[in-house]
Design a protein around this nucleic acid. Structure first.
Lengths: 201, 201
DNA sequence: CGGCTCCCGGGACATTTGTCACGGCCAGGT
DNA sequence: ACCTGGCCGTGACAAATGTCCCGGGAGCCG
């Protein structure tokens, strides 16, 4: 029996996947969580063979949780299942030691097949996405540029970002300006969108 | 047998729901589409009793499609199934003649139960969401303010918006300013976010 | 009819934002 | 020891943005 952990914030999606996978004759869902910061605890408790993780979760990113599992539960393989096939996400997933990366498009049959594949020690990635991730190159933004950009997502002013990051307003503007330059965009919002599309956020 | 139409852009979600609902003894999924502009055609072809529509779809909004079904296939009940329980969405869904409004959180069991409820002529809405929609009041933005705000989502400049809407830059700035005032926000991006959270976009 | 609101535009103004040039500090590699 | 690159800050400047005035026209309603 393949023991599965399911981490997904949308209740209906989580429930549907759990029912479907539970119907496979060789699988059972031994844990379900809706938050990223519950993944490690649940994994330690229920000892799954494969953890199916969404990326964008409340509490803690699925990518961070994947890295945690690498050290806390090394014999649990991680399969990332996400809505967005962003190149940067794929790259970070691989660096976090994930064994596979699936997008939520594509047929459901793909899911069970990929789980078995991962359990056999193979790595499963959408070829087109892998090509995009390689051609895009690594994240050119520095840590602070990312911080500034991330703090700017919801329309915060320079003053807001500066106080949130304990920086001077001038510094914040310099970071934003260089981030805008590196993304080849015209203003803060375009830079944010470009960075998110690449999975750099 | 209850005949169902399923409109949902995420392949995995669509497939999972189709399988689950198909397993109910009194239901069958007679049509599945991944785009909003295929809903009416599919409904005319397969004559479903209930159409399960996501809102944010490529091609055409599920809300617009619901309004279309009202006239093109009047005996097909519409059940909106969406990720975001925005007050404005609920309001528009009701105005479009929807028989129910579900969010994708909450358990899967809710789904089949709601479908049967809708078919009995009842209206199904999350009470908390209904309260929020009523207390929020109607959309205070004028049509042009909405247009300007919608065109500003991805970091477009005033010049971009002006040329996209065939307006003068002064006019665009006036619309944006009044939208910012009505949403009680400080700049364009906060206004966009506030409007989207309310479902006013 | 007068009043109202929405649509569209112009002009002036303060504020914010984005850019550039310039410092200094510290860690890393050659 | 030197250079490079990230980090943090300043000051100044042009451009974009947001606000407040002001018009006129169209439609709707009491």
């Amino acid at each position: 029996m393949i023991r599965l952990l399911l981490a997904e914030d949308q209740g209906m999606m989580r429930g549907a996947l759990a029912l479907l996978l539970g119907m496979e004759h060789d699988m059972e869902v031994v844990a379900q969580v809706g938050r990223g910061d519950e993944i490690v605890d649940a994994a330690l408790l229920s000892r799954p063979d494969v953890a199916l993780l969404d990326i964008e979760l409340p509490g803690r990113s699925g990518l961070d949780a994947a890295a945690d599992l690498r050290t806390e539960a090394p014999d649990c393989r991680v399969l990332i299942l996400t809505t967005f096939g962003r190149p940067g996400y794929l790259r970070r997933a691989m660096e976090a030691g994930a064994a596979g990366f699936l997008v939520k498009d594509g047929p459901v049959e793909e899911l069970a097949a990929s789980i078995r594949q991962v359990l056999r020690g193979e790595t499963v990635i959408d070829p087109a996405l892998a090509a995009a991730a390689l051609s895009a190159g690594p994240n050119p933004l520095t840590a602070r540029e990312r911080d500034a950009l991330a703090a700017a997502v919801d329309g915060a002013t320079v003053a807001d970002i500066a106080s949130a990051l304990h920086l001077s307003e001038s510094t914040v503007r310099n970071y934003l300006s260089s981030a805008i330059g590196k993304t080849g965009t015209r203003n803060r919002m375009e830079a944010v969108r470009a960075a998110r599309r690449q999975g750099w956020l």
